[in-house]
């Protein structure tokens, strides 16, 4: 295990074998997306994507208050004033801001490796979108998740599209239009998160899940992530008929896995 620190130290990167743990490290600002954090997240995302020795990434927040509170509105206001704009909304609309949204804010179609959000506290607005952009979500029991933008007169804009693949449409609309945050248990019941764990345990549990994921060969993970992401939003019959190359059972690991499977077959 080696410990390294991103240039700006707003994102701490730690490796656990094939797992990369990225910790957003602006606890004094509830890990808000500013101060170089979006850029650092982007860089880490690309490094993870391109490093064959890394297979799963975990994203979490430093401290015990927040996973991520979304865009750094205070910083945005300062920058907006500097740009001569009157509000943070104007900045959100500015082209200059668009380029530094974290890449895995739902737009991870080019990445077949699983990303897990370990939600250790408040998970709001852009932070919620970041978590929804991940493949799996583990949330601590005291954490809350939501899109409160509407309560500040700002619409949630970035990747709320992901929400509608995580909950039925009516619930998604309720979340976006009321801005009410959900307690962990409610998010779990809706299927918005995969597991609820005790306070302080989200990274530990995410790491266990990551290690389970790592038991599969790359071909298995790649095949299924591509198939899932290619088929969502398509008519079912069309999606079922899609053909893919590199079937998992054609991999060199298949026969070996079969022997291991025999050892504990049939499953209980």
């Amino acid at each position: 295990m080696t410990t390294e620190t991103a240039p700006a130290e707003v994102l701490l990167l730690r490796r656990e074998g094939p797992v990369l743990i990225a910790t957003m490290n602006r606890p004094e600002r509830m890990n808000a997306l500013g101060g170089g954090l979006p850029e650092a997240l982007n860089e880490a995302w690309f490094d993870f994507k391109d490093d064959p020795s890394l297979r799963v990434m975990i994203v979490t927040g430093a401290g015990d208050r927040a996973f991520c509170a979304g865009a750094d509105l205070r910083q945005n206001d300062e920058r907006a004033r500097a740009l001569g704009a009157e509000s943070a909304q104007a900045l959100l609309d500015a082209d200059a801001y668009r380029g530094i949204r974290p890449s895995f804010n739902g737009n991870n179609f080019g990445l077949w490796k699983p990303v897990i959000a370990a939600i250790n506290g408040w998970c709001l607005a852009g932070g919620c979108e970041l978590a929804m952009g991940c493949d799996l979500r583990v949330i601590e029991e005291q954490a809350q998740i939501g899109l409160p933008e509407v309560k500040r007169g700002m619409g949630a804009k970035q990747t709320t599209h992901k929400l509608y693949f995580l909950t039925p449409l009516s619930l998604g609309l309720e979340i976006v239009w009321t801005g009410d945050t959900l307690i962990a248990q409610t998010a779990y019941q809706l299927g918005l998160v995969n597991e609820v764990v005790p306070k302080g345990k989200s990274v530990e549990r995410a790491l266990e899940l990551a290690q389970q994921v790592c038991r599969y060969p790359n071909t298995y993970l790649q095949y299924h992530k591509l198939r899932v992401f290619q088929s969502i939003g398509l008519p079912v019959d069309y999606a079922l008929a899609l053909q893919q190359r590199d079937l998992p059972h054609q991999s060199s690991e298949f026969r070996e896995g079969l022997q291991a499977s025999l050892g504990h077959w049939p499953p209980k």
Binding site: P114, D135, L136, R137, K162, F165, L166, T167, G191, L192, V193, N194, L209, Q212, V213, Y216, L221, H224, K225, R227, V228, S231, I232, V236, A239, L240
Partner: peptide, 19 residues
């Protein structure tokens, strides 16, 4: 892979397939 996201959700589907 096709039906789980339609019936449950994207996150539930990926969880079952990956873990």
């Amino acid at each position: 892979s096709v039906l789980l996201p339609h019936m449950a959700s994207l996150g539930i589907g990926l969880d079952l397939l990956f873990t």
